[in-house]
Amino acid sequence: MSRIDTQLAELGIILPEPVAPVANYVPYVISGKQVFISGQVSIGANGLITGKLGADLSIEDGVEAAHACGVNLIAQLRAACGGDLDRVKRVVKLGGFVNCTPDFVDQPKVVNGTSDLMVAVFGDAGRHARAAVGAPSLPLGAAVEVDGVFEIA
């Protein structure tokens, strides 16, 4: 078992099959040593996590939704790496989008659900640049969507 697979097992994370695109795009693109992963919505073990932060979801709900996005990012990354997550050298950048009311201001706290996961899985290589922004709506009514850029060997 690889180092990252061992870390995922210790964290109790089972990666799902990568989610298929819902429109005219590909799930990831490899360019040189970078993998650009399309936005992953908040699909967890019990299905799509929907709702709006500041209205019907708490910050804790949002963090859980962002964590689900992170798990889906790692599943896509595993596919991009031919199944070998030990090829990941760095989480370069994440872009987090939070479905929220206009007065909601805790997008960074919500997107920490993905950021904390990346550090837990990849250690110092999981520290990254990031954006966390609010959106009036997201595809399929998802609570959160996160995309990412990763460096691989």
Score class of each variant (00 low, 15 high):
V133C: 08
Q7K: 14
V63N: 04
D106S: 11
A129S: 13
L117P: 07
G82S: 09
D106K: 06
D124I: 04
A45K: 14
D56G: 07
I74Y: 08
S58F: 12
P108K: 08
G12M: 12
D116S: 11
A68W: 04
K33G: 14
D84Q: 08
A143D: 05
V98Y: 01
V111C: 10
A153C: 10
G51L: 05
A143I: 06
E145Y: 06
M1R: 10
G39H: 04
P102F: 00
Q7F: 01
R78H: 09
C69L: 09
K89T: 12
V149Q: 13
H67P: 00
C81Q: 03
A9Y: 05
A45L: 09
L15K: 09
I152H: 01
T6R: 13
V111K: 00
A135Q: 13
S31I: 06
Q34P: 03
S137W: 15
C100H: 08
G62V: 02
E60A: 15
A80D: 03
D56N: 15
P21H: 09
P108D: 05
G141E: 07
S31W: 03
F97L: 15
S2I: 06
D86M: 07
Q76S: 15
D61H: 10
L15A: 10
S38H: 09
V144Q: 02
L140A: 14
Q40Y: 07
M118Q: 04
F150Q: 01
V121I: 11
I74W: 04
L48N: 10
V35C: 06
V121T: 02
A55K: 15
D56K: 03
Q34S: 06
I13P: 03
E60P: 00
Q7M: 14
S137K: 14
D116C: 02
G32S: 08
N99L: 05
R78W: 08
A120Y: 02
A142S: 15
M118C: 09
A79W: 00
E151N: 03
Q34C: 02
V144E: 01
P108V: 01
I74G: 07
A120M: 03
D124P: 04
A80C: 09
I14M: 08
G96Q: 02
L53M: 13
F97H: 14
G70N: 10
L57T: 03
V26G: 13
Q7Y: 00
E17W: 06
G123H: 11
A131C: 07
D56M: 09
V22P: 00
E145L: 15
N24S: 13
V144S: 05
V35I: 14
G62L: 01
L73Y: 05
D103P: 02
N46T: 14
V22G: 10
E64K: 15
F36K: 08
G148C: 01
E145S: 15
P108W: 04
V144A: 10
N72F: 11
A55D: 14
G32T: 10
F122C: 06
S42Q: 08
K93E: 15
G126S: 03
